[in-house]
Amino acid sequence: MIDTAFPLSQSAASGITGGTGVAVSAESGTGSPAPAAENIGTASSGLDQLLQHPAIWRGRSIARVQSVSTGFPALDEALPGGGWPRAGLVELLIPRFGAGELYLLLPALAALTQQHSARWCAWVSPPLDPYAPALAAHGVELGRLFIAQANSPLWAFEQSLVSGACDAVLGWAVQRALEPHARDIRRLQLAAEKGRTLGVLFRPHRAARESSSAVLRVVVEPLEDGARVTLLKSRGGHRGALDLTWTHQNENSPRSHGS
């Protein structure tokens, strides 16, 4: 659709430069400088501006998502916007606790908490005690992190998301009695958008069959020295599986963190 709409500027270009057709595709519109007359540039930049309007949806090239890098280049490439969304709900589906789901998030958490004006990073009802020395060793700024032990984790999760006081909120809903329904997920997703917060909800693997309105749904399965990450749902991104390797595997040497 974009390509059919484009001849407008092409005909303008041929009209001015005498037929040196300038092939400017929609994808490369921002990067490639127009070699011809200046008003082509203004025309294409105007078009770019138009296309960046939030109401225009361009399928897979939905690039205007604020994101934070996951720390894994392969995963960044697969995700829309090149990382975890800054505002939205991400579901991490895990077959069992300790599948590597936290290592997947740690680089992003470290980046978020180390920012100049970092907001809080909240952990709602973690099943065990997060071990502070290990978190600090991975670069997570502990001063920006708090833990809320709630017997109604979804309430605390939503409050943290909607308050706008958090950069990231991690929530565990692993107990069978407290599992969220589809409309709860919708509510959490809206809360995350409103508070401009990255919400990460850890759910058991069996929830993969249910439909969900989360921005991103990821299955994490443990591998030998990494994890297999399957994108079940990714709004405007790729789907499929990719294998990641933890950089901290050969940790016996202190230089292996690369930080």
């Binding site: 300790g98 936290l102 290592y103 740690l106 973690p126 099943p127 065990l128 005690d129 997060p130 071990y131 020395p133 290990a134 978190l135 600090a136 060793a137 901290h248 940790e251 016996n252 202190p254 963190h257 930080s259």
Partner: peptide, 12 residues
């Protein structure tokens, strides 16, 4: 703590 392998979760 970077030199040592420490888990992210600790059992109480």
């Amino acid at each position: 703590w970077q030199a040592f392998q420490r888990p992210l979760w600790l059992l109480p």
